[in-house]
Simulated scan of single mutants.
Amino acid sequence: MTLDLTGRTALVTGGAQGLGEGMAHALAAAGARVVVADLQDDLGEKVADALEGEGHGFVHHDVTDEASWENAVTAATQDFGGLDVLVNNAGVEISSLIVDVDPKDIRTMLEVNVLGTALGLKWGLRAMRPDGVAGNGGSIINIASVAATIAFPGIPIYSATKSAVDRMTRVAAMEAGKLGYGVRVNCVYPGLVPTAMGQGLAVDMAKLGLFGSPEEAVAAVVELTPSGRLGEVADMADAVVFLASDQARFVNGIGLPVDGGMGM
């Protein structure tokens, strides 16, 4: 089955590295015009330049800022042909035991993971609905985490924010359906992937005394995973392309685990 996104424009937040970069490449390979959105200008522009095909670009974007969202959506619709797919991928993870949580770190994760996703839903739905600047409906894909479905130690606030992403996804899907927006809203629960964030998490688990070493932390994740391995960027990117495609036309309001069975 070939997933074809030719003629569609996709905006990917946090697209300059890690999962977001992989998702941008996968969407471009499926034929979409991709707008890479990130705070990291140099990295983001390099990713946009390296995407397969033509018509891609980069926009400086802070997901916690309302004006920045308006600018990103305007750029997508005016400079890149519309907005058909929005991937709310940008996120941060700061590890801590519950007894040591820092209010500053809590606010950071709430701002990026919860507020950032909420604003993405707001501006994505406004643009895609029939009276919006794009106006052709579409697909919004929020990136949650397997942490939203399991009780893994050391990431209490991150887990809570990703649970919030799941709940917002389902409410947004219901609202969009009831109001006739023509927009499907889904989320993905990625398992642990050895990106910079994933590797940092393993190191943090050892520093917190939860595991004897980063390698032990990784081994524990693999042990909890029926597929017997860590996730790969391509695993997550392919799921995003599927949810963006017509093959997922009746898939709406779900959380799709792409975790090798870890969260079952």
Results as ranks from 00 to 15, higher is better:
residue 120 G to D: 03
residue 74 T to S: 14
residue 136 N to D: 05
residue 171 V to T: 13
residue 103 P to Y: 07
residue 132 G to K: 07
residue 35 V to L: 07
residue 115 L to Q: 12
residue 55 G to V: 09
residue 164 A to K: 08
residue 67 A to H: 08
residue 47 V to A: 10
residue 124 G to V: 10
residue 168 M to E: 06
residue 77 T to S: 02
residue 148 A to F: 12
residue 96 S to E: 11
residue 170 R to A: 08
residue 76 A to C: 12
residue 149 T to S: 14
residue 107 R to I: 14
residue 176 A to E: 03
residue 74 T to K: 15
residue 133 V to A: 15
residue 44 G to A: 12
residue 101 V to L: 11
residue 46 K to P: 00
residue 86 L to H: 00
residue 157 I to F: 06
residue 29 A to V: 05
residue 165 V to A: 14
residue 160 A to M: 08
residue 102 D to T: 10
residue 163 S to Y: 10
residue 106 I to P: 01
residue 118 A to T: 04
residue 83 L to V: 06
residue 66 E to F: 09
residue 39 L to P: 02
residue 35 V to R: 00
residue 158 Y to E: 14
residue 127 A to K: 00
residue 49 D to H: 13
residue 43 L to G: 01
residue 118 A to I: 06
residue 101 V to F: 08
residue 140 I to Y: 03
residue 175 E to S: 06
residue 73 V to D: 05
residue 59 V to K: 01
residue 33 R to P: 00
residue 135 G to W: 09
residue 41 D to G: 08
residue 58 F to W: 08
residue 39 L to M: 08
residue 163 S to W: 06
residue 56 H to N: 14
residue 109 M to W: 00
residue 126 R to G: 10
residue 127 A to V: 09
residue 54 E to I: 11
residue 175 E to Q: 08
residue 29 A to E: 14
residue 116 G to D: 03
residue 128 M to K: 10
residue 77 T to G: 00
residue 63 V to Y: 01
residue 72 A to E: 10
residue 71 N to C: 12
residue 67 A to Q: 15
residue 44 G to C: 11
residue 139 S to L: 05
residue 145 S to T: 08
residue 104 K to E: 11
residue 170 R to M: 12
residue 61 H to L: 15
residue 101 V to P: 02
residue 108 T to W: 02
residue 131 D to T: 08
residue 107 R to D: 12
residue 83 L to C: 06
residue 41 D to T: 07
residue 133 V to L: 15
residue 67 A to M: 09
residue 106 I to L: 15
residue 103 P to M: 10
residue 63 V to A: 07
residue 117 T to K: 07
residue 50 A to S: 15
residue 63 V to S: 03
residue 155 I to P: 01
residue 163 S to N: 11
residue 104 K to N: 13
residue 154 G to A: 11
residue 118 A to S: 10
residue 96 S to N: 11
residue 120 G to F: 01
residue 152 F to Q: 12
residue 176 A to W: 00
residue 126 R to C: 04
residue 137 G to F: 01
residue 162 K to D: 04
residue 149 T to R: 14
residue 37 A to I: 06
residue 48 A to D: 12
residue 86 L to T: 03
residue 89 N to R: 08
residue 92 V to H: 11
residue 175 E to K: 07
residue 65 D to I: 12
residue 35 V to E: 00
residue 137 G to K: 05
residue 174 M to W: 08
residue 110 L to G: 03
residue 76 A to G: 04
residue 61 H to G: 04
residue 32 A to P: 03
residue 79 D to R: 13
residue 171 V to G: 14
residue 125 L to V: 06
residue 121 L to V: 05
residue 58 F to Q: 09
residue 51 L to K: 00
residue 36 V to A: 02
residue 101 V to E: 13
residue 159 S to T: 09
residue 121 L to I: 04
residue 87 V to N: 05
residue 129 R to A: 09
residue 148 A to D: 05
residue 165 V to P: 02
residue 77 T to W: 01
residue 53 G to Q: 13
residue 43 L to D: 04
residue 69 W to F: 04
residue 156 P to E: 10
residue 94 I to A: 02
residue 154 G to E: 02
residue 99 V to C: 11
